[in-house]
Write a protein that binds this DNA or RNA. Structure first.
Length: 579
DNA sequence: TTAACGCGCGCG
DNA sequence: AAAGCGCGCGCGTTAA
């Protein structure tokens, strides 16, 4: 059963019970009901308590779900029309459908509304964003909440259902849309719950490394290092934060660096290098995750980043503000479970090469990854002679490395695993021709921009120069590396979505009816890694659920093909304790 | 004064 | 060792 949820005027919502996706002219009229927004959570909760939970159809999970969660109401399933539209619009599997061939419309231009972190999200629904409020649509900021003129969710849902039904592979697309929508729910739930985070530990950590928080200026340790750098380079005024100035000072002192990148400086022998590298490391910590970051992002013992599901072309998530996907290893000791609770930190081992194994149905590579570390398995197969080589060769194959050690190892990898290598090579060739490539479940890459096509055209023109042709070839190869990686990264993102959605269901089943944050719940997601916050006595069950969900995700994507997806699941008090 | 851009580095 | 994919962010610099 689907229930469509849309705004009705300024402070009400309309629920429509959908008997079928299509709306036939001769069918009975659909039952619908208008309720004030204030009464919506109660109504949704009542539907969720029914024996058959509905699938809520709405324009945008980020516009509806935060307020429901704030009112203590969880939703099991939904259709996020905005996210699903984006997939169906560009997928090669739906290319011939009405949805994909239509002129660009209001569903193509939607931006994600900004979701305020839960504790400060006081209003149940943001009335200022009501569709008939001309002021809000004029600003263009968060005016996409609700259903602005031109966006008809009922019609869009029918169009999407048609597109899936007429697609080249309805089963896979249906799975992808369900997973994407589940991801949208999870993203909001992650922000609602927040990552357990000790501001005190973070402060202690900073103080230990940088010195006490200064009222203004650099902390003591950075101040000392600045002095050491200035002395070492005989440049008393130097600002070490200015790369051009730093580079000039280095060269004046006889250090022949061509940039100020750490990895380049590391190879140079000079007394100033050691304090300089230490300065860079600590300065990065201060600016990215220092006290300012702590004040802005950690409240009431929780770090609540704004997750953006589907925020990356490949289907990976992005975050907005807080840099949640770049939480440095340095500060992970501040991620600590509540008293009596544990963190289950789970990580899918060598996810991308295993996904490639499934995509290519490469039996040899599946065998290499069975029951052990995939890279060790590649060594055991005799293709290369040490783990580091196996890893660098695999990464090179998936990223398109041509030079260096990785490039040199490619032929050996190709001999041992011809199917896997052929799959990424074919994806690269397609990109070089300017074609789309498509993930396991049906997400397709964008087409290259107009500049790309212009460059190719210039190379084929009658009066083309050698430079034109070089440029075109280079652009073509660049795009080929993107599409090569796209098939793997996008499919891995799908695996991760399925894993998380399965895990979410299993966690809910561990404590039926419990409020989100009173039972085991997801608190963090990082591409191939999740953290569950759980009462200590349920931690073993959670770890088992994490593993079972991974197995299930593998079956959902690759059916009976015997590629394994082992996950490590560490039960710890602090994130830093996990590997 | 603000906006756009490049650099450098954190994560996968 | 530092190439080959995808990001976000803060800073300094430069253009407008």
């Amino acid at each position: 059963m689907h229930i469509l949820l849309e705004r009705s005027g300024r402070d009400a919502a309309r629920l429509t019970w959908l008997e079928s996706a299509r709306r036939d002219a001769d069918a009975a009229p659909e039952r619908s009901r208008v309720v004030p927004l204030a009464g919506l959570p109660g109504l949704v909760a009542a539907e969720e308590a029914a024996s058959e939970r509905p699938r809520w159809v709405w324009d945008d999970t980020r516009a509806w779900y935060p307020a429901l969660l704030a009112a203590g109401v969880r939703v099991e399933r939904c259709v996020d029309l905005r996210l699903c539209h984006a997939i169906l619009r560009t997928s090669t599997l739906t290319a011939a459908t009405a949805l994909a061939t239509a002129e660009p419309g209001p569903w193509d231009a939607m931006e994600e509304p900004v979701v305020e972190a839960a504790p400060r999200h006081t209003a149940l629904f943001d009335l200022d964003d009501a569709p008939d409020d001309p002021a809000s649509s004029a600003t263009g900021s968060a005016a996409t909440v609700g259903a602005p003129a031109g966006r008809d969710p009922r019609a869009e849902f029918a169009l999407q259902e048609d597109a899936v039904a007429q697609s080249a592979d309805p089963r896979r697309l249906r799975l992808l849309l369900a997973a994407e929508s589940a991801g949208a729910l999870i993203g909001v739930e992650l922000q609602h719950a927040g990552l357990p985070y000790s501001a005190q530990r973070h402060d202690e950590l900073l103080t230990g490394l940088l010195g006490p928080r200064p009222a203004y200026g650099r902390p003591a340790v950075l101040e000392e290092l600045t002095r050491a750098i200035r002395d070492g380079l005989d440049s008393p005024e130097l600002n070490p934060d200015s790369p051009p100035d730093l580079l000039k000072a280095l060269q004046r002192a006889g250090v022949m660096a061509t940039s100020t990148r750490s990895w380049e400086l590391r190879r140079i022998e000079h007394p100033v290098i050691e304090p300089l590298l230490r300065y860079k490391k600590l300065s990065r910590l201060l600016t990215a995750n220092g006290w300012t970051w702590l004040d802005a992002w950690v409240h009431d013992g929780r770090f609540r980043p704004d997750y953006v599901p589907g925020g990356v072309v490949t289907g990976r998530w992005a975050t907005r503000g807080g840099g949640a996907l770049q939480l440095p290893k340095q500060v992970r000791g501040a991620v600590v479970a509540d008293p009596g609770w544990k963190l289950v930190v789970a990580d899918a081992a060598q996810l991308e090469p295993r996904v490639l194994t499934g995509l290519a149905a490469d039996q040899a590579m599946a065998a290499a990854g069975r029951g052990k570390d995939l890279y060790e398995g590649i060594v055991a197969s005799g293709a290369v002679d040490e783990r580091a080589h196996a890893k660098v060769a695999m990464l090179g194959a998936m990223y398109g490395a041509t030079t260096g050690e990785s490039g040199r190892l490619m032929p050996r990898l190709q001999r041992a695993f011809p199917r896997a290598v052929a799959l990424v090579e074919e994806a690269a060739r397609a990109g070089e021709r300017g074609e789309k490539v498509t993930s396991r479940l049906g997400r397709s890459s964008p087409l290259p921009g107009t500049g790309w096509a212009a460059a190719q055209a210039a190379a084929f023109a009658a009066d083309s120069t050698a430079a034109d042709e070089r440029r075109a070839r280079s652009r073509a190869r660049d795009w080929g590396r993107f599409t090569r990686n796209f098939v793997v990264q996008a499919s891995a993102a799908e695996w991760a979505l399925c894993w998380m959605a399965e895990l979410r269901n299993r966690l809910t089943a561990l404590a039926p009816g419990a409020a989100l944050t009173e039972a085991p719940h997801l608190v963090y997601f990082l591409h191939d890694e999740v953290i569950v916050h759980t009462p200590a006595d349920r931690a073993e069950e959670v770890a088992a659920a994490v593993r079972a969900a991974a197995e299930q995700a593998g079956r959902l994507l690759f059916g009976a093909f015997p590629v394994e997806f082992p996950v490590t699941a560490a039960i710890v008090d602090s994130y830093a304790e996990a590997k």
